[in-house]
Amino acid sequence: MLESFKIADLGCSSGPNTLLFVSEIIDTINKLSKQNSNKTQEISVILNDLTKNDFNNIFSALPSFYELLKKNHGYEFSRKCFISGVAASFYERLVPCKSLHFVHSSYCLHWLSQVPENLENKEHIYMSKTRDPNVFNAYKNQFYKDFSSFLTHRSHEILPTGRMVLTLVGRESPDPSEDDGCHVIELLAQSLLDVVSQGLIKQEDIDSFNLPVYHPCKDEVKEIIHNENSFDLEKLEVFECDWNPHDNDYGDGDYNYKFDKKQRGEIVANSVRSIIEPTLVPHFGELVLDNVFKSYEERAIDHFETGKAKYINLIICLKKK
C-alpha cells in the first residue's frame, strides 16, 4: 500500500469545474481504501496551468473544498489531502523526476504552444478545406513537436507503470481537408470577416491572426506515442459530441422540442466565445466581440440546416513503460 498518491491535473483552468476532477479522484481513492481495509493514503494534487490563469480564484475556493471533504469523508481524511499549484506550460518540465502516479488533462492538448511559424493563411484563422496543403502541414508539424515534447517531459515525471488519461478535441478523418471538425472555427473566421465589412476591424487584422490549435486524428496520436516510445497506449476512444452540449441530453431529434434554432445558435456562439475570447481580445480588442459573436450566432443557425454540427473527442489512456 502506497503511503502517498501523487496526481497532477494539467490545464486545470480556474472555473467551477476546476476541482471536479480532484474531487472524483479523492472520492475514488477513499472508496478503494475502505474496500481494501487499508489505512487512508496521503493525497498530493498538483494543479497546473499557464501563468495568466487565475490561481487566486482556485486557492480562494480551497477552504470550502476542504470543508466538503471533511463532511463527506471525515476530519482525518481531509487532513491528508494537499493541493498546490504550478504556473507553467505543460510543454515544459513541471515537477521532479518520478514524482507522479497519475496525470490528467482535459480539453487542453489540442492547444499548441504557439502558432506555426511562417504561416500564409489570409482570410482564415485556422485550417480550412480551401487552404494550401502547406497550411495543414505547418499545423500538423507543430502538433507533432508539441505532443512529443509533452510525452517526453511527462515520462521523466511519472513513476514506472504510472498512468495518464488525456482528453482532447480531434477529428474523424485522417485527411483534414475532408473533415468538418474545423468548421466551428471556420464560422468564426467568416464572422470576423462580417465585422470587417462593418468597418469595425481591418482585413489585415484577420490576415495576421491564426489560432494556435490543432485537432488530430487518432492515427496521428498513435504514431506520435509509438515514435516517442515512453508510454504504452492502453486505450484510445473516439466519440462525437454536439456543438450544442444540451443536444446530447435529448436523444436523436428530441432537442428540437426543447430549443428552437435561435436558441441553439445562441448557445453555440456563447460556448465558442467562452473558450476563444481570451485569445481574440489581445489581437482584436474587446469592443468588437459582441458584433462578432452575434454574426456567429446567425451563421451557426444557418449551418444547422445544411452542415454537420458535431465535433470529435479523443480519450487516451497511457501507461508509463
Score class of each variant (00 low, 15 high):
residue 149 S to W: 00
residue 149 S to H: 01
residue 162 G to H: 06
residue 176 P to F: 01
residue 132 D to V: 02
residue 136 F to C: 11
residue 127 M to K: 14
residue 141 N to R: 06
residue 139 Y to I: 02
residue 123 E to S: 11
residue 170 G to P: 08
residue 138 A to G: 03
residue 161 T to V: 10
residue 170 G to N: 04
residue 197 S to K: 14
residue 147 F to R: 08
residue 174 P to W: 08
residue 179 D to I: 02
residue 140 K to G: 05
residue 166 L to A: 08
residue 161 T to C: 06
residue 150 F to S: 09
residue 179 D to H: 10
residue 115 V to T: 05
residue 146 D to W: 02
residue 177 S to Q: 10
residue 144 Y to P: 00
residue 182 C to S: 09
residue 168 L to Y: 05
residue 174 P to E: 15
residue 169 V to N: 10
residue 195 V to D: 07
residue 165 V to S: 15
residue 190 Q to P: 00
residue 159 L to Y: 09
residue 197 S to L: 11
residue 167 T to Y: 05
residue 188 L to N: 01
residue 160 P to R: 09
residue 160 P to E: 13
residue 118 N to V: 11
residue 138 A to C: 01
residue 165 V to F: 14
residue 124 H to F: 03
residue 126 Y to K: 03
residue 123 E to K: 15
residue 147 F to K: 04
residue 167 T to A: 14
residue 193 L to D: 03
residue 197 S to P: 00
residue 160 P to V: 05
residue 181 G to F: 02
residue 147 F to S: 05
residue 137 N to L: 15
residue 169 V to S: 09
residue 141 N to Q: 12
residue 163 R to H: 15
residue 128 S to P: 02
residue 198 Q to W: 00
residue 185 I to L: 13
residue 132 D to K: 03
residue 180 D to N: 08
residue 193 L to G: 00
residue 180 D to P: 11
residue 182 C to I: 05
residue 123 E to A: 09
residue 119 L to P: 04
residue 175 D to W: 01
residue 183 H to A: 11
residue 155 S to Q: 08
residue 191 S to H: 04
residue 191 S to I: 03
residue 156 H to G: 12
residue 194 D to E: 09
residue 153 H to M: 08
residue 120 E to R: 14
residue 166 L to D: 11
residue 165 V to N: 11
residue 143 F to N: 00
residue 143 F to T: 00
residue 154 R to A: 09
residue 124 H to P: 03
residue 193 L to W: 05
residue 129 K to I: 06
residue 158 I to G: 06
